[in-house]
Design a protein around this nucleic acid. Structure first.
Lengths: 341, 341
DNA sequence: TTGAAAGCGGTACCAA
DNA sequence: TTGGTACCGCTTTCAA
């Protein structure tokens, strides 16, 4: 391994000078800097990350910790965040929490807070206090922070407004017997859930129902333990088998929607003829399915710009001890075949 | 930040003793170790990664560098690798190369070779020699290494055997006018391409055609510049618009297959009635599409077990200077609706 | 069985 | 403008 001493020797300067020169400190004479840079290139030198990070506390790395990388939405979000981070000249590393608390702690404690200049974290089962302790004061931006008293900057998806838009759209195309897949109404009973993704989306649904003066009850809202396609596919089977009637469905994520659509097809119920369908997230797969999926699409570029932007601000101004900020990512309704009649 | 000195002081031992105790060195008396461990827990101590890594050259981190995280196959592969790495008690960090050479170099040079005890890398545009230089002798396992003279351990997907299986399956269900989407025959003309994914899969197709004594020519094989759904969708449009007849299609990836299927549907050509369809990879989305997709499924658990296993062996026995090894991941044909007649 | 001390490869203060 | 040097926090050799 070639170290800075090697470079300094090659350029016939001191280690200190070499260090300054390579980082472009203006106090170093241009001619000296050129010598050093040339020597570094000749030796194919790269600064040792551990050493630099140990001494300066900076690594140039931003961590992204996300629940499950094999699901379309988180993977597309991570990819977008990663590119945005690169655009700032930083390296992005992505870690999968698998929604396991042990994993979350391990990631925050052993990697993120140690190595990363900042973290973008999609919290699962870990509390604000634990995060405080584990991040050791390093900047962190949360994605969809459900806590009642935010302790960190965060970027939210437009859960309530988006869900409201989705249901309003179903109503506007003539649906009158609408069901919602993803959460049951009872979720909202517990005040601790006031800001969870489920509650926010439920709230938007209720707004739409009320504005349109459409009746609803407990059976309108169907919980999904896991927001994945197989769960939704089973729900569809049960629903049809039970003889339930509906002419429109809002699924709280696209993954649910695609699974639900498939489940309906398994029972010869077809979208959009028999029931219109709207999802949420805007994953790419929704544009390819048969029929293609109407969805409330979160603008991932905007989400990435906001979260990485906030994080970089904190990193660059660590002294500013501002209140935690909350931003919301843009969204738009993308109308496709699943709601065209 | 709480350091080892703090722990040592709290436990009333020296820093060295604390270090040994925490890592379970047997020379430390049990009672002493308990004191230290207790102190560490009380202070909520975590060893500084940079310091440890700088001094010992080990970090407990394995890097995974993959081309695009927002595509189903690489994202599902990364997720599986990540879990497998965790099962070995190591931390996994995932980085996205975006198939940009600059990015690949940057990742290898600035993060992977610096920080990671080993790397699993899906090479894009970087050469063996460059990798040698950038990894600085650290263990690395390549995924689908296309080089003619492998310089690293690698795990291959069963390109030739898998593609052969796929085409044989189409033949076995009665298809006689089969087309292949993904690469053109001319790809194989350049000897430099002898081991690329495209060539391997082409080779398998040719074997199947020849064994079944089925005619084929240049027009049987249609190139896709990018292996993504939109490209395939366009190909489908062009093919149908040009009046091309076929009763079966093998797409070199599931993403191509799903796009192709959607493109056929855009032109009122339906799978499997009008043409049977087989993909390659085995992404989860293939089980949900309408119709569900027959595919040659790569066993990702097996792929992960093999690649992480090889890597861990290299890490644990750095002295053994064995020849580069090649392994191949298991696969199986998963027959679904797209080829049921 | 434990402790003192020398680094690992950089950074940054201070002096020249 | 440049160089000497202390130090970041941990590991590891060597001595006690």
């Amino acid at each position: 391994m070639v170290t800075m001493s090697d470079v300094a020797k090659e350029a016939r300067v001191s280690r200190a000078t070499a260090s300054y020169a390579l980082r472009g400190d203006t106090r170093i004479a241009e001619s000296t800097r050129n010598k050093v840079v040339e020597a570094a290139r000749k030796l194919n030198y790269t600064a040792n990350l551990s050493a630099r990070s140990l001494r300066s506390g900076k690594s140039g790395i931003i961590g992204v910790a996300i629940f499950e990388l094999d699901k379309p939405y988180p993977s597309q979000m991570s990819a977008t965040l990663s590119r945005k981070i690169n655009a700032y000249g930083m390296q992005a590393i992505i870690q999968q929490t698998s929604i396991s608390k042990r994993n979350e702690i391990s990631i925050l404690q052993r990697v993120t807070s140690q190595l990363c200049d900042g973290t973008i974290f999609s919290p699962g089962s870990i509390s604000n206090e634990e995060m405080r302790a584990l991040t050791d004061g390093k900047p962190m931006v949360l994605l969809d922070d459900p806590s009642l008293h935010p302790a960190f900057d965060s970027v939210m998806t437009a859960g309530t407004a988006g869900a409201r838009t989705a249901v309003m759209h179903l109503i506007s195309i003539g649906c009158r017997r609408i069901i919602v897949i993803g959460a049951s109404l009872s979720t909202m009973n517990d005040p601790a859930n006031a800001n969870t993704t489920k509650t926010l989306r439920l709230r938007g649904c209720l707004q739409a129902f009320q504005e349109a003066e459409l009746a609803f009850d407990d059976t309108t809202f169907i919980n999904a333990d896991h927001w994945d396609p197989d769960t939704a596919r089973n729900i569809a089977h049960q629903l049809i088998d039970s003889g339930r009637q509906f002419d429109g469905a809002f699924c709280m994520t696209d993954s649910l929607a695609l699974g639900f659509m498939r489940g309906l097809a398994d029972r010869q119920v077809y979208v959009p003829q028999d029931a219109a369908l709207v999802g949420f997230d805007g994953i790419k797969e929704g544009g390819l399915s048969l029929p293609s999926l109407t969805t409330v699409q979160t603008d991932l570029d905007d989400l990435a710009a906001k979260s990485v932007g906030m994080l970089m601000e904190r990193i660059n101004q660590p002294q500013a001890h501002l209140e935690p900020q909350q931003m919301t990512a843009n969204y738009k309704l993308v109308v496709r075949e699943s709601s065209r009649r």
